[in-house]
């Protein structure tokens, strides 16, 4: 007597929830990977079903990066934790002037996470990776008991290749160099805060979450070795990024407040929350330091790209043994633009 072939039950992606069996290495985990991640990421490397993926790279200078994503809430206006996990790692590669090639993705899921939420996040990742042309070629999933994680944590790693001859470095900034931002600052942080528990406010602001490697390729072509360094001002915002660069290069910066692009809605939200847009996170913006003779071609190339349309020069590097980031305010006075002491917390009054 032959055994009847068991019927393969599909996961209830509409109403089901992640449970501990989805991380236990058995059939349930196999189904989760197949129905959620393989379906969403959809590429030949993953379909091969190996514990790793192989790819060919010509001899060149490579870059590698990794980042963990724990944002709350996981869905916010303009994106979600999935788009962040893809674009954030792509941007870390791109800031070296490199072309991102491949990503990996690891998931820590909290027991009880609705499968519909997981599917939504996975689909966002698939779409973001296809839009950027950077496939997710290997991954891992773990499930932890309720309360041991907050819904979903994602860790992505990426590899990329740098164009020959390009070596950006955070210690390369020289006095006289120009400071350029690729667009309005503070959009992402304010969009996320507008959906935080206890803080919900009405706003039309969307996260600026976007992959910057296309813009970066145009910048590298336009400015060449005149490009000293690039950074994406994520946590800690523009202020933290410029202070890091000042410290690493041993220079100061002077900024002009009225040259820094900030959306009116972001300025207004920061105003009533008692925050400074310079400290607020961005996910689709970059800061570039460029030699003065390459400033104009760089700005022209950036403004010709959709993600750099509002690119602006906002200040210059100066000689300064104290490595201060100073700013002339809209009011006409001067002040320091400092790191935050800790987390940015709203003020009482």
């Amino acid at each position: 007597m032959s055994l009847a072939k068991p019927i393969r039950r599909k996961l209830d992606l509409a109403n089901g929830r992640v449970d501990l069996s989805h991380g236990a290495g058995g059939r349930a985990m196999g189904r989760l990977i197949e129905d959620v991640f393989l379906a969403a990421f959809d590429n030949a490397w993953l379909a091969a079903g190996n514990d790793q993926s192989a790819f060919e790279v010509a001899a060149c200078r490579m870059v590698m990066t990794t980042d963990a994503y724990v944002v709350s809430p996981i869905f916010f206006p303009g994106g979600d934790i999935g788009t962040l996990a893809v674009n954030g790692t792509i941007n870390d590669i791109a800031m070296a002037g490199a072309r991102p090639l491949y990503l990996s993705a690891s998931f820590v899921l909290e027991e009880g996470l609705p499968l519909a939420d997981l599917v939504r996040v996975a689909r966002s990742m698939g779409e973001a990776s296809r839009a950027a042309g950077v496939p997710i070629i290997t991954g891992d999933t773990k499930v932890v008991e309720r309360g041991k994680a907050d819904k979903i944590f994602i860790s992505t790693a990426g590899v990329g290749v740098t164009p020959p001859g390009l070596a950006l470095s955070s210690d390369a900034v020289q006095p006289g160099d120009a400071v350029v931002v690729s667009g309005t600052i503070g959009d992402h942080g304010v969009a996320v805060m507008s959906k935080r528990e206890n803080l919900e406010f009405e706003t039309a602001i969307l996260s600026d979450c976007a992959p910057l490697h296309g813009l970066v390729a145009d910048m590298v072509a336009a400015a060449g070795p005149g490009l000293r360094v690039m950074r994406d001002p994520t946590r800690g915002g523009l202020a933290a990024t410029l202070n890091e660069l000042a410290n690493q290069s041993g220079v100061g910066f002077t900024l002009e407040e009225d040259a820094i692009p900030v959306r009116a809605e972001v300025a207004a939200a920061c105003e009533f929350l008692g925050l400074d847009p310079l400290n607020v996170a961005n996910e689709g913006k970059l800061v570039a330091i460029v030699a003065p003779d390459r400033l104009e071609p760089l700005l022209a190339a950036m403004r010709a790209h959709p993600l750099g349309a509002r690119a602006a020069m906002i200040g210059r590097a100066v000689e300064d043994p104290d490595r201060f980031v100073e700013m002339r305010t809209v009011f006409g006075g001067g002040r320091i633009v400092d790191w935050l002491a800790g987390e940015q917390l709203p003020r009482i009054c």
């Binding site: 002339r328 305010t329 809209v330 009011f331 006409g332 006075g333 002040r335 003020r347």
Partner: peptide
Amino acid sequence: GGHTHAISRYGLEDL
């Protein structure tokens, strides 16, 4: 403190 913040934030002393 609100005044202190405005004075410092806008560099009023320089004027």
